[in-house]
Amino acid sequence: MTHPALDIGLTHYLLVTTTLVAAGIATILTKRNAIGILIGVELVLNAAAINLVAYNHFAWSAGKGGPAIEGVMFTAFIIVLAAAEAAVALAIVLNYYNNFSSVDVDQADSLSG
């Protein structure tokens, strides 16, 4: 019997991405800089993407009889959407900075009653 640490399986990848998603959530919660929050969102997205590729790797596509491709496709779309989201979010942050001269999200309370 080999040591389980030598036998990298799906669980190992899932444990890493769990740590990653927790770090992302903690980043989103603790940062006051709007760009810091964006970085936290990128961490969460990356954790989900690694999860999808790991499941894709360890699951054989039963229907087509070939290697699975769905997780890889999903991750490619995640990368596209993350780039689009970062562009729009940074445009919003720039607009906000032009109006408030700050990127502190706690100051964005103009709409609160």
Partner: peptide, 30 residues
């Protein structure tokens, strides 16, 4: 991780689009 999971194309896309595009965008924003 993508390289180890035999998703070489995704590893390249990750470095080009994420590290080369999204991260540069974030640095510009900063």
């Amino acid at each position: 991780f993508y390289l180890m999971l035999q998703a070489e194309f995704l590893a390249a896309v990750q470095l080009i689009v994420y590290a080369g595009g999204t991260l540069i965008l974030i640095v510009f924003g900063i």
